[in-house]
Amino acid sequence: MSTSTRTKRVKKVRASSAEDPAMAKSPVSKFFGRLALAIVVIITLFPIYWMVRTAFSDNRAMFGEPLSLLPVDFTLGPIERVLGLATPDEAIAEGGSGASINFGLYMLNSIITATLITVFQIAFSAMAAYAFALLKWKGRDAVFNLFLIALMVPVIFTILPNFVLIKELGLLNTIIGIALPAMFMTPFAIFFLRQFFFGVNLSIIEAAVIDGASQWRIFSRIAVPLVWPQIITLALLQFIFYWNDYLWPLLVGTTEESKLITVGLGIFRSQTPAGNPDWAGLMAGALLAAIPIFVLILIFGKQIVGSIQSSGVK
């Protein structure tokens, strides 16, 4: 591929299918490609539709018509239960539970926690990935492999000691206590960013070194902008991951002030041994909790595809 080694300036190109050479041109390929996409979209959407249908069904009547494609006895009750607008008695009467839920506060807690984790984790992981990919030092790969092993550490090893540590730090039932273990790094993020830093055109960095730029400046002004779309992708995926995290926040954040939305929605799952979930409330909760992240994807998603570095990364 040495024909394409012209050094280009880093610039942003607005992508559109007409001028985007990565897009297929042949009409036959286009037809089959889009057909395949359509099939994937349908298989993906059907169960989601089923959740929507269930979220608007009456929990008590639902299994009277288990195969109905439309909501059974259309009701906003489940949504009200999720938003905490129903009294415990109403909730129980509708097949929900008598526990209260403070939807707005839990959502806010989740937003703060997931943002906190994502911002710090990605910043620190990017620094580490830079050291593992673009700096040369003895023992680099060995240390990286050691970090990589963290990916394989089973949860049962970490959960109790980390809980005790957070307790010793006096951070139980605080948002910082929930976020702390994930804020410094994850082997996943380091590994991911390292692979992209490998692709950075070294001549650009070379030139910066000759110009006398510090490593911090090269990292923050050259390397990070070059992999920005990938950082955004990673940030979105990590945000979603921590948004959905359950066990750890369940143990650490038990007060109203520190309860995350996933934990709050736990009251819609089966409360007694071998009981039934509040199906409608559970689905309504899952969908409502997913809305903020979906919006986030639509906003930041543009950055994943919208700004494409022409050939800074090759």
Partner: peptide, 27 residues
Amino acid sequence: LAGCSAGSTTTDGSVEIKYSLWDANQM
């Protein structure tokens, strides 16, 4: 936020007993 929730002893100096149960219907 941490500061807000740090005080787990009740303000009026009384004793707080934490009680756990699982059945939300009995809550």
